[in-house]
Design a protein around this nucleic acid. Structure first.
Length: 968
RNA sequence: GCCGCUAUGGCGGAAUUGGUAGACGCGCUGGAUUCAAAAUCCAGUUCCAUUGGAGUGUGGGUUCGAUUCCCACUGGCGGUACCA
């Protein structure tokens, strides 16, 4: 038998596939363990070395649990609906289903190459009609339910109708789009359409006109998490806010439960914090202000009702309809001008320049506590979406209000005395109230309660909890997604497609382009027009399929339900979920939402989908390309500079030898930045800088290249750079290398296949684990993989002699050898549980080195070692296991048990410290008493040398730990 | 700004949760083997000083003893941002 990694990989991968070694049994007698990886979107570029990090980690856990006798569910599937495949189709004419099938096959092949133990018979694919039938079914259920705040759960819409028939909206505590007041009589008088519209106000999947993120370039609306810095996450296109009629999911109904549930799950603090942030709960009060000369009131939300006596003006969001009604004749022009200005400002403008702007409406509100007359302004710093879209402004205790008051010359009334809290900022909730009537002398927290009590007593408001989270916009004007299972009848009443008619599949189309907000599906006339009415033409976002997929794996071929009751009762939830932190907010939050909904309607037995979540760290690649940017210096000069890829325009920079300024558009090329991609050839592993030679710039210019035009500009401007000369006299620039996320776009992706082909899958797996803690970000570097390869060869060498013959002896292992084995068993078992895979690998190395030193070849020691390494190096372990005569696959062989007796030490080596500094070590029997150790240590000649001429103040002896002499 | 994570040799990282800092691996140095190279094996490798000292981003503190706990900073990474 030879150490031929390529042959071993091939042999055993083939065997596992043919024998379905990793098939999950429907054996409910054994305890279950569910290890799940976030399924990938199968992009055209395949896996890079960053992907497998999590897959390998979860695979190790799956194999370990399997060997421990758990019935392990470890599936993999594909999130195959989504924008990129559609965009690719538009660009190339290849149908998304075709490109998806090709990419999926490639991913599967790459995963098999890594020796991952997935049960492929349970694989799911979100664009498969047999799968999305159930995505549509679930959304249909969401549509058929409303949220009862009294009961704290989702209830069928039929219950709501019953309530409306008897009580109208009275006593209805429902999550709703807007507060409505309808009596039972009025409800009874409504026709179908009116009722449908009314119910829409309460459905958990509902249609409404609201401001949404519209992306012109993609021709679709986007969810908040698909927008980064005012641009689309996919494609980096500008996004604007537009009022549109869209489907949404009422996630706000679940905000409180999504928050509370975080206490019951094992997620990292960082991840919990992100979710908490996103949900954004804040407790305060809703206060009604009268408006002078108007019937209606101005409602505001504040977390600081205590500062109400310092409210010297009100601000409302420019978008509110109220603005128009409040504006006086004299102020009309000013307000109209301001509204026009706001209309021109994009999200991007707002973010990049944070200016103080606003306009006075001419109207006045009346302070409900002291009747003070306060002017009402509009300003863009007040957001229409948060709270009521209006605030009482207290310039004495809020930075933004202060800036506004300063600019518009508005009075400031100090109401909180913060002299006792030096360093406290305006917003900190500390200090004593003054200038505040009945609140005077109170501390802020007390005053908040007192002010709220008074406001409630006067009927001028009530306590309120506000959330930052917005309802989830759930329709897309795209082709490649699940069609909404809705048909509008002749009266335009939306009706759910009955279950027996699901799935609603996509029509075949030639051209998927969305035209000005109209879904491409609208052009599929035959498909749209059904005997029952017109089909909804919007599709669902990619998250629709991914937020419940973990349930489908439990019962992937069920035709009767998305998951059978028996299956979900057995598998319950995911024990360990592994995936990238980039999905920390959206994906996890949305699947928690859907899970809670399914819990409410009795379809799942657990309240949370994922017990424990592990975010693997990103493996960065060196971004070995640079950009040309233009630095506009403070003196108005423009200088070309080299910058990293992540520097955005407008960034202030200080460049040595040039000066300070900020980055501007490269007008000569009309692009934002100019990428230089040709430097990738340079090996930049482990370097912090690399040399860009002038000659390579010239060469690149000659290439047939999409960026060729840019290179000319670069050469023209190259003179501005500080070229240095190397030993051979060639001019070069010293450029820094930055680490960044691997992606095809950045030309820094490393393909795992190449590494597996060269070193074998086992080596690749162990090397990725050896890189460091799995949850930490780290740069990819191939240096060091040789060390792991050498280790595997040495490990192999324990079993197989120089003549490629098995050289294992049946002789009993020595106590020393068995100690090495059992130390290893303990270390690896504990560390896998801790998900500390890097230390497992080094434990294997240590044990191997020690056993080699002892020339150990005893079966008693080596046979269990094979079972230990099996989760890490499955191919090599399987080969050795069979060679040793093992029955069946090593991956079903029992995990070795620790025998503590071998770990007991006769002696303990005590560190002997003087004033805390360790100077020497001494051996004493492990069971020596404190006094014995102290006596023995004092008697030692070397110790006496240290003690000579010194006064011993104290001796600390901790048995089994250390000895410390405190001397002076 | 706010939130979270993080900082240890030339590099990736380890340290039983307050008890021998630098495990393991890379790299480097020297040696063996070889005609030679690769591969392999052996020894060394935190820094400074020929004995001894210093040392886990910085400054303080608690302790017999601190990489670990507390306080105040600084840098890096990630998230988020007129959220009232």
């Amino acid at each position: 038998m030879k150490f031929d990694v390529q042959a071993l990989d091939k042999k055993w991968q083939q065997y596992w596939k043919e024998n379905k070694t990793y098939a999950t049994a429907d054996d409910t007698s054994r305890p279950k363990f569910y290890v799940l990886d976030m399924f990938p979107y199968p992009s055209g570029s395949g896996l890079h070395v960053g992907h497998p990090l999590g897959y390998i980690g979860s695979d190790i856990v799956a194999r370990y649990k399997r060997q421990q006798g758990f019935n392990v569910l470890h599936p993999m599937g594909f999130d195959s609906f989504g924008l990129p495949a559609e965009q690719y189709a538009i660009d190339t004419g290849v149908h998304p289903s075709e490109s998806t099938a090709i990419n999926t096959a490639r991913y599967r092949e790459q995963m098999d190459t890594l020796g991952l133990s997935f049960d492929w018979d349970r694989s799911v694919n979100t664009s498969d009609p047999n799968y999305f039938k159930w995505t549509q079914w679930i959304i249909g259920q969401v549509f058929e339910h409303w949220y009862d705040r009294d009961a704290g759960l989702a209830r069928p819409v039929s219950d709501l109708v019953a309530h409306l028939e008897t009580h109208g909206t009275r006593q209805l505590q429902a999550a709703q789009t807007e507060g409505l007041d309808v009596s039972a009589e009025e409800f009874a008088a409504m026709d179908e359409k009116q009722r449908s519209d009314l119910l829409m106000n309460y459905r958990l999947a509902f249609r409404s006109v609201s401001y949404v993120n519209w992306c012109e370039a993609l021709g679709t609306v986007l969810a908040n998490d698909e927008v980064k810095d005012g641009r689309s996450e996919r494609g980096n296109h500008p996004v604007e806010q537009r009022p549109m009629l869209q489907w949404s999911l009422r996630i706000t109904a679940y905000a409180e439960r999504l928050l509370a549930g975080l206490d019951t799950v094992d997620y990292s603090e960082g991840l919990k914090a992100q979710q908490i942030n996103w949900i954004g709960k804040s407790t305060g009060a809703l206060v009604h202000f009268d408006i002078e000369g108007h019937q209606e009131q101005l409602d505001i939300f504040t977390t600081r009702p205590d500062t109400i006596f310092g409210a010297t003006f009100m601000v409302i969001a420019p978008e509110l309809e109220l603005v128009d009604r409040l504006t006086t004749l004299e102020q009309r022009k000013e307000i109209d001008d301001y509204l026009a200005y706001v209309g021109r400002r994009s999200e991007l403008d707002r973010m990049s320049e944070n200016k103080v702007t606003g306009a006075f409406t001419g109207a006045y509100a009346l302070n409900p506590l002291n009747g003070a007359r306060v002017p009402i302004y509009i300003a863009e710093y007040v957001l229409k979406d948060y709270g009521t879209g209006a605030i009482m402004a207290v310039p004495s205790d809020d930075d933004r209000d202060k800036r506004f008051a300063d600019k518009f010359g508005i009075e400031v009334i100090d109401v909180v005395d913060k002299r006792d809290y030096p360093g406290a900022t305006l917003k900190d909730k500390v200090g004593k109230l003054f200038n505040s009537d009945f609140l005077n002398g109170m501390d802020v927290p007390e005053a908040i309660a007192a002010a709220t009590d008074r406001i409630e007593a006067l009927g001028r408001g009530e306590r309120q909890v506000n959330f930052r989270i917005r309802d989830l916009v759930f329709s897309r004007q795209r082709y490649w997604g699940e069609p909404w299972p809705i048909i509008y009848d002749a009266d335009d009443v939306p009706r759910l497609v009955p279950e027996d008619q699901l799935p609603v599949t996509l029509p075949e189309m030639e051209d998927f382009r969305a035209v000005s907000g109209a879904s491409p599906l609208e052009r599929a006339e035959q498909w749209v027009n059904t005997p029952d009415g017109r089909r909804e033409t919007d599709t669902m976002p990619a998250t629709a399929g991914s937020n419940w997929y973990y349930l489908r794996y439990m019962d992937p071929h069920d035709d009767e339900a998305f998951v059978s009751k028996e299956s979900v009762d057995y598998w319950q939830d995911v024990d360990l979920y592994v995936g990238g932190a980039e999905h920390a907010v959206s994906h996890i939050l949305y699947s928690r939402l859907v899970h809670k909904f399914l819990f409410d309607i009795g379809k799942v037995p657990t309240r949370e989908p994922y017990k424990k979540l592990l975010n693997q760290g990103m493996i960065g690649g060196p971004i070995s390309y640079v950009h040309l940017g233009i630095l506009l210096t403070d003196d108005g000069q423009r200088h070309p500079i080299w910058i990293g890829s992540d520097v955005a325009e407008g960034t202030p920079l200080a460049v040595a030898g040039i000066g300070t300024g900020y980055l501007v558009l490269d007008e000569s090329t009309g692009t934002r930045l100019t990428p230089l991609r040709f430097v990738t050839e340079t090996s930049v592993n482990n370097e912090t800088s690399f040399r860009l030679y002038h000659s390579s710039v010239e060469e690149a210019q000659k290439l047939e290249h999409q960026d060729a035009a840019y290179f000319r500009t670069i050469l023209q401007q190259a003179g501005a750079f500080a070229w240095e000369t190397d030993k051979e006299g060639r001019p070069y620039l010293e450029l820094s290398v930055e680490q960044g996320k691997m992606s095809k776009r950045k030309y820094n992706a490393v393909n795992p296949d190449d590494i597996c082909a060269r070193y074998g899958a086992d080596c690749f797996r162990m090397y990725e684990m050896f890189l460091g803690p799995i949850d930490q970000a780290k740069p990819w570097s191939v240096s060091g993989i040789d060390g792991v390869y050498r280790f595997l060869r040495r490990f192999w060498g324990l079993y197989v002699g120089t003549g490629d013959q098995l050289s294992v002896s049946e002789e009993a292992g020595s106590r020393e050898e068995l100690k090495i084995l059992h130390t290893l068993i303990k270390k690896v078992s504990v560390d896998i549980e801790k998900l500390s895979f890097n230390t497992c690998v080094s434990a294997f190395m240590v044990a191997t080195n020690e056993l080699l030193k002892l020339h150990c070849n005893k079966r008693e020691v080596l046979e269990p070692a094979v079972r230990l390494i099996a989760p890490f190096a499955p191919h090599l372990a399987e080969e050795l296991h069979r060679a040793l005569g093992g029955e069946g696959s090593v991956h079903h062989a029992a995990w070795p048990a620790v025998e503590e007796e071998y770990l007991v030490e006769d002696n303990f080596t005590y560190p002997i410290a003087f004033n805390g500094k360790t100077r020497l070590t001494l051996d004493f029997p492990a069971d020596a008493t404190k006094a014995e150790v102290e006596q023995g240590a004092r008697a030692h000649t070397q110790v006496q040398g240290y003690l000579e001429g010194k006064h011993i103040r104290k001796v600390i002896v901790v048995p089994g730990r250390m000895v410390n002499f405190v001397i002076g």
